[in-house]
Simulated assay, not measured.
Amino acid sequence: MTNIDQAKQAVRERVWRQLIDGGGAPADSYGKIPGFYGAEGTAEQLAGLDEWRRASTVKANPDWAQLPVRVRALKDGKRVYMAVPRMASLEPFYLLDPKNLGLPPEEAAEKKGAAQVARRLGVESMEAIDVVVCGSVAVNRSGARIGKGAGYSDLEVALLIEAGLVTEKTIIVAPVHQLQVIEDDIPEIEHDFSVDYIVTPDEVIPCPNRRRPRGLVWGDLTPEKIAAIPVLAQRRPS
């Protein structure tokens, strides 16, 4: 573990503890993208953004904390690309189309429901994305974020950037509890991306320092990580 990895982990552990101790999330949230209390309010706040109203396509993580946003997107008539858990497929995204769901939005937007009714797609079959919704453990007001440490959000965004589906027009948002918004600096390396908006149950916080990778940073990936994710193994440079 590098010094930056250690610094990020220290931030995670502090935020998990203050979130749980502060009553912002259940006790079993430690070590996860927290399913924080009041997540439904983040969907309402996000729906008030002009960028959301104009969006036709949303990409979201499959975490429980983002379920209300996925549901809201479907109810608002937006197509939702939801990452297959752990990107464990050559077609690592589910497509939830509000015109053809087969289940109520509340069920279709869950991991179990999506696995039942959604089509799996590779990036070559996807359309440009207007809004990326990313799960986070901690964010600061400059837009730097930390996930739970598995790296899937970074890989998904990098893959979509390489495919030309996440562009300068795409906004990235982090729905979180207020206790996950910190004042500290968050260390960033080449593959990290920042968010354009932090969305809490009570407010939307614009973030000024946009940061995005140009694509996959192969030097940051271990052979084990590449082998475990089919779409990476397929694309690995020779």
Rank of each mutant, 00 (worst) to 15 (best):
K225M: 13
G219S: 14
E203G: 00
E91F: 10
I229H: 02
G164P: 06
S194E: 01
L49C: 10
A227E: 15
K78A: 05
R236W: 07
L90W: 04
S153T: 09
V133Q: 11
V117G: 05
P206M: 02
V132Q: 09
V69W: 09
E106I: 08
W218S: 08
A150F: 07
L155M: 11
A73C: 09
P98F: 03
A109H: 14
V84G: 02
K225D: 06
K99W: 04
G38M: 11
A55E: 15
E44D: 12
Y94R: 10
A115F: 01
E124H: 05
A158N: 04
P85C: 03
T167A: 06
Y197F: 14
V181L: 00
A115R: 04
Y197V: 00
A227H: 07
F93G: 05
D196P: 03
I33Y: 13
G31Q: 14
S142Y: 01
L221V: 15
G122M: 10
E51D: 13
I226Y: 06
G35Q: 14
L19A: 15
R145I: 01
V132N: 09
I182F: 02
G48Y: 02
S29T: 14
A228R: 15
P105I: 05
L179Q: 07
K8R: 13
L121K: 13
P201T: 01
D192M: 07
V84N: 00
E183S: 02
D50T: 12
P206R: 02
T42K: 14
Y37G: 03
E44Q: 13
I186R: 04
R210A: 10
A25W: 06
G24S: 11
D184T: 05
Y81R: 11
W218V: 08
A158E: 02
E127C: 04
A25Y: 06
A233E: 15
R211M: 00
A115S: 06
I171V: 15
M1K: 08
M1R: 09
G38A: 12
R210V: 07
A7H: 14
K169Q: 13
R86T: 01
P98W: 05
I161F: 08
G48K: 15
E110N: 07
N140Q: 00
K111L: 06
D192A: 05
P206E: 03
S153L: 07
P85V: 01
D28Y: 12
S153F: 09
L159H: 06
P175N: 05
G147L: 08
P105L: 03
P105K: 06
S153G: 13
G113C: 03
S89P: 06
G149C: 12
D220Q: 15
R211F: 00
Q6C: 07
R72P: 00
Q116W: 06
D97C: 07
N61M: 13
T42H: 12
Y81K: 09
V80R: 11
P187H: 04
R141A: 01
S194R: 12
